[in-house]
Nucleic acid binder design. Sequence first.
RNA 1: GAGAUAUUAGCUCAGUUGGUUUAGAGCACUACCUUGACAGGGUAGGGGUCACUGGUUCGAGUCCAGUAUGUCUCACCA
Length: 878
Amino acid sequence: MISARYNPKDVEERWYDEWESKGYFKSNPDDREAFSIVIPPPNVTGVLHMGHMLNNTIQDILIRKARQEGKNACWVPGTDHASIATEAKVVKMLREKGIKKSDLSREEFLNYAWQWKEEYGGIILKQLRKLGASCDWDRTAFTMDEVRSKAVYKAFVDLYRKNKLYRGNRMVNWDPEAKTVLSNEEVIFGLEQSKLYHVRYQIVGTEAYVTIATTRPETIPGDTAIAVHPDDERYAWLKGKKAIVPIINREIPIIFDDYVDREFGTGALKVTPAHDVNDHEIGKRHQLEIIDIFNPDGTMSDDATVYLGEDRFVVRKKFSKDLEEAGHIVNIEDYQNNVGRSERTNAVVEPRLSLQWYVDMGTLSDPALKAVMDDVVEFFPKSQKNIYRHWMENIKDWCISRQLWWGHRIPAWYFEDQVFVAETAKEAFKLAQKTFPTIQKEQLIQDEDVLDTWFSSWLWPISVFDGFEDKEVLNYYYPTSVLVTGWDIIFLWVARMVMAGYEWTGTFPFEKVYFTGMVRDKQRRKMSKQLGNSPDALQLIADYGADGVRFGMMSCSPAGGDLLFDEKLVEQGRNFCNKMWNALRLLKSWETENENPQSDKDRLAGQWMMSMIASTQEELVRDYKDFRLSEGLMKLYNLIWNEYCSWYLEMIKPQFGEKIHENTYQEAIDAFSQLCSILHPFMPFITEEIWHLLKDRSAGEDCIISTLKIEKQDNNDVQKYINTAKDIITSVREIRQKQAIKMKDELQLYILKTEGVDKLIALNGWEDIVKKLAILDDIIISDDLNINGISFISGTEKCMIQIHQELDIEGELISLQKDLDYQQGFVDSVTKKLSNERFVQNAKPEIVEKEQAKLADGQERIKILTEEIQRLQAQLKG
RNA sequence: GAGAUAUUAGCUCAGUUGGUUUAGAGCACUACCUUGACAGGGUAGGGGUCACUGGUUCGAGUCCAGUAUGUCUCACCA
């Protein structure tokens, strides 16, 4: 006996192992068409969260679909090394052991890091298996493994030689916590509550003051000028004067620059060229001194002369208090401003002047922009194209060096004032020898920094196939078919991959990009650790089954739209599994016979079911093409739950204790098998399990590779006729409920004889279906429906249910009148349209025909309703 | 500040070149239904002047303009 509830735990692990051991996930180039996806590599330190589940479920659906279609499906998994995040984790782990990073050599630190990576890294890849991800695990890549590292060095050197990569001294985004520079894309700006301090500076040689406004009083020790607008008459008298930096007592010039906004604050601006991007520009224009008052960790440096070694935010408080006591604070107001924080550490980013490596993006962007604008690389949803274009057209150079140890060490070596860039130290030395014939190996010093993690990720679609070395494999799988990722990394990753693609392969890296939405909670808040609103992904799988979770995620995630996660969704998925499971139990409980011929009813039901499957399948083709996966899934949900379980199985279900005809049984099994096939990409485990329990399968006859054959249907009339049957059945059931007639009581249905009704009755089995599901003992076709009963209209057919209790004629009249009013309104609107000459002239003929049909139908219903009302009124009087 | 995008049932969303019987689905809700697949269920039902104002058109949820509100991207004034 099969359990009354579906138990995903038993099933899922068993099938995953089976698929893997049969090698279904593996892919090697062959004659078939390739369908390839590269995974957006999760952080090697990461654990599975809701975003990963959504993203990877989608990829798995697409890959499984392609596999079923007979394509050579290849999904390449892997992880990235996440410089900042991983290094932070390792540092923390060492600190807990009592080891300081500063006490270790680079080599020692990296040993610890690799050890840590081997032990804890890549857990997420194991977790993806629980979700059902059918990746080709043999191809698992890591951005720092040998193949991927070689690609990184090759790319760096190549760009350098092509003059598309340079080293420059500029203002950068500094993360004082990670003590590294960040690219613009790694800084997240957000409005924060702060204070605007109005501080007065004394003018040298006078008792006069000038007041500036600043949010960062702690930077005052780094001031090297006060700037005002040249046309600002309020400050014209300051020409040639100097001001005294409060507390610090250093004299600084007053300068005139039209960058200054006269409307803001007091119209006077303190200039700190070392710690503000705009101030730095002003400083350059006026040849101002640059005083760097911060250490790399955000504490005050010796040049600050005050509060040495204390943190910038502590100093903000202390220094503003000093200013206040010294009488320099004019006032302090509450203020909201945009604060940039590090994406990885959340530390407030400190603008800082520093020497870094940059990629000259202007030289890479043109083909990448064009590809997306021309839909050579197609974006879903389309709206992302604008965002992409805007970024590409205003592209800034990419700062790729990071002051960390975990990552690809920059392949640049220095001697005296010369730089030698090469893929290996050996080659760099050879290069150096050409300029310095007597140079010794130890004299050549490699750059201390590593490269931005994204500098390896942007090569991912090429490097996972070892594409810099092996063109044959690359040419088979590349360009990949589709990239599935979040829109939050469109610049960090997607745009750069397109650029890298054109730079090194001459073509785009993927044909389509499907941007998933963010997973949020019911209240539309982002899922975050701080809020604690993110469910434990693995626990969800344990509680609801991977199929249930996949259903929950997919049923409600429109392309590009946010997924508002609610546990109700996965519950629905679990219930759906249970529904299918119980349909299986029902089938398995039937005994078959083939002594009698198959009934017309069952044959018709089977035809109808197959036709429904075929037309749903046709619709799904488009849903897949447009990535409307949630709609596709909901169609299948409806097809299985409503059409197959609620209608079809009820049609063919034998009476208690009776047997089912062998043919009918086989049809039911075949239909269910097909449903499993179609649903498999979405819910792989339960479909494979049911597929095998439905009937004995030969070796290798598995749902995961079952092909979907769409049989073009030519009997669409069957659907139409069954729809009428369903409509009549529903109406009868409704009358039953309203009249409180028991389900067991058999009723008689009268239908007014018309041509349409004759056709229905002529369809063998149609009548039996209606009788069975509406629980009727007879259907009577008659010219005269003057009986004691309740009428209803199906389409344009008048039907009546005979009742044996007294009819509430007045109640009936009210409801008939309501219906009549509705129909009258409907007919009026159609009539209005049709009596408009311009409509009849301008509209397409088939539209006009349709309107005429609408009118005729409406008029027919009005006729029926009017007659019925008259009949009842006559009864009431009589 | 510039640009994009959205606003349809209590909630989340469909509505694909303007005409598919005066708007559909899932969830939620209401009523009824307990022994033969399933209460993680069945049957039926209620619920929307398609944000607002104009315009184009024979015809607008669908196209255009404006308003309001929300979201996002980029750039920022210290």
